[in-house]
């Protein structure tokens, strides 16, 4: 379980994340939603110890993320941030292999290679595996990064806007894949995501943030309601039931 207690991040006097206390359940796919500037990405980065907290603490399976050795944590929790500019010229296969770094320190065993092949196949990157990252489209590169993170094979996987750069077809297959990683591989997947309907359809649990605080949390059925969404995003919503899915419109 990821336990977040009283976590704050302030720049000067301005709080970006303001005393957040939250327990993220083990297993399933949890989406963090909210308007721009709600502090979602900042919170995610602090959970993954990429950013120091101003106050509070985060533990993953009881391990304090700021005190646990980096390599120990790297075998339990991985993160993919958005806007990854990698200047190093690596092939897709090289990049995915570095997902095994916490396990092998660069000297890949048979088991590592197996994970690499699996991740490449899982993201359908077989044909691109020998290509350099700078020769790929934004969407292909995003898939390569996701393959790398999955190859790290951690119980907890965090993604900041994983659908960035993806067209509809690839966005849907990416969400299905992440949901499958949660249901089939038993991983705890936590996303920061903008598209409320993607969150509604694929999440097991939704956490909504606004101005650095948690405003509400619950199952998609509890969150995807016109009045709740209106409070979160500050714009009118209509919620329709199509098949068994609740779809929000706000256009």
């Amino acid at each position: 379980m990821i336990e977040i207690s009283n976590v704050s991040k302030t720049y000067g006097a301005k709080p970006v994340v303001d005393g957040v206390t939250l327990n993220l359940p083990v297993g399933g796919l949890t989406s963090i939603v909210g308007p721009n500037g709600a502090g979602k990405s900042t919170l995610l980065s602090m959970i993954a110890r990429l950013m120091p907290m101003s106050a509070g603490s985060v533990t993953v399976d009881g391990l304090d993320v700021t005190k646990t050795p980096g390599d120990v944590l790297a075998r339990r929790l991985s993160i993919l941030r958005q806007d990854n500019h990698v200047t190093a010229r690596l092939t897709v296969r090289d990049l995915v292999s570095f997902g095994r770094y916490p396990h092998s320190r660069g000297r890949l065993t048979k088991e590592d290679l197996h994970h690499v092949d699996e991740a490449i196949a899982y993201l359908n990157l077989g044909e691109l595996s020998g290509r350099f990252l700078d020769e790929l489209s934004g969407g292909q590169r995003q898939r390569a990064f996701v393959a790398m993170v999955l190859c790290q094979n951690t119980d907890y996987v965090l993604f900041d806007e994983p659908l960035n750069n993806l067209d509809m077809k690839h966005a849907v297959s990416m969400m299905r894949l992440l949901a499958r990683a949660a249901s089939d591989l038993g991983k705890t997947v936590v996303l920061v995501i903008h598209d409320i309907n993607f969150a509604a359809v694929y999440s097991d649990y939704i956490v909504a943030m606004q101005s650095g605080r948690i405003v509400c949390q619950g199952t998609p059925d509890e969150i995807i309601r016109a009045d709740v969404l209106e409070t979160i995003f500050g714009t009118p919503f209509e919620v329709h039931t199509i098949g068994s899915r609740r779809i929000a419109t706000f256009y």
Partner: peptide, 18 residues
């Protein structure tokens, strides 16, 4: 290998436990 991982940037490197 450490230098290659560091070349991915501080976030990737930290996430990979470096």
């Amino acid at each position: 290998d450490r230098f290659t991982v560091a070349g991915l940037g501080e976030d990737f490197a930290t996430s990979l436990g470096l």
